[in-house]
Computed example of a mutant assay.
Amino acid sequence: MDIDLYYQEKGNKDKTPLILLHGNGEDGSYFKNQIDYFSDKYRVIALDTRGHGKSPRGTEPFTIEQFSCDLYDFMVRLDISNAVILGFSDGANIAMKFAMRYPDKVRALILNGGNLNPKGVKRTTQIPIEIGYRIARWFSSKSPDARKNAEMLGLMVNEPDIEPNELASIIVPTLVICGSKDMIKESHTKEIAENIPNAKLSIIKGNHFIANKQHATFNNAVEEFLQTIF
């Protein structure tokens, strides 16, 4: 691994690790209402993905696939044999890739607001992203900020690329959770849940950012799910 990922940690190291993966352009602090809440029962670790927050960009590709490899290297570095992975938005996409690539490293999955491909995003949200991406790419050769912005937006324009039938390889307990007014199409979220064996689906009143905006309801749903496992 060419970089060391920045992370926040809270909770007893003897407890089951709960790794939190934030969304595009964010950092681990997005989960402030989960870090405290779950730290009494779990070893909570909130990562900053490559090129996000306090984690360096490094030289490797800026892709969901690479982020999943980064997570593997991070867990090896911290000697974490397996963990519960909770991913939001791009973090959920990383979590899906990770679970398919490294099944032995995952005890359970919580997928919040993830998508299999850009078509899963509502057009009212996706069109401005695509326009912003084209503009950023145009200026990327002249501006480091534009180049960074183009990379970030490119994750949402060009990725992820997961086929529904690939999800059948995810055999750990899985909770698929989203907001009732999420920017991800509800039909798309349901497709994810239907293609992961025995996955549970929870739709909470709210938008894409339910873990932050409706954290009490979100945390209760996650806790109820985890209580069926541990």
Rank of each mutant, 00 (worst) to 15 (best):
I135T: 06
S29A: 11
H215P: 02
I127D: 02
I110F: 10
C69P: 01
V157R: 08
E65L: 08
G51Q: 04
M152P: 02
M183L: 13
E151L: 15
P197N: 01
L153G: 01
Q214C: 08
F67G: 02
A150W: 01
F225T: 00
D70K: 09
G53C: 12
D27Q: 15
N12A: 05
Q227K: 15
F230M: 07
T174V: 07
Y6K: 00
V44N: 07
M156Q: 12
C178R: 09
P144Y: 11
A193H: 03
I196K: 13
Y30Q: 12
V76I: 15
K190Q: 12
R101I: 01
I170V: 11
H52E: 02
S202P: 06
N115M: 04
I210T: 00
G154C: 01
M75P: 13
F31Y: 12
L167P: 07
H22N: 02
I192K: 02
K13D: 13
Y72K: 08
I131S: 12
G132N: 08
L71A: 05
P164C: 10
T174N: 01
L155H: 04
D161R: 11
I171Y: 00
K10Q: 15
N93S: 10
N158Y: 15
G179D: 09
G25N: 01
I210F: 12
I203R: 08
P173E: 04
S143E: 04
K54C: 03
G179W: 14
W138F: 15
P144L: 13
D79C: 14
S169T: 10
G120I: 05
I80S: 03
N195A: 13
G154T: 00
S81Q: 15
I177W: 13
K97L: 14
F38C: 12
I135Q: 06
L21K: 07
K190D: 01
S140H: 00
Y37I: 01
I177R: 05
L116A: 05
V44Y: 05
Y7Q: 03
H208S: 04
I184H: 09
L78D: 11
A146R: 09
L47K: 09
E186P: 06
P144R: 11
G51S: 11
L226V: 04
N149C: 08
E186A: 07
P118I: 07
H215F: 15
E65M: 10
T124E: 09
G114A: 10
D90T: 11
Y102C: 02
F98N: 08
A211Y: 00
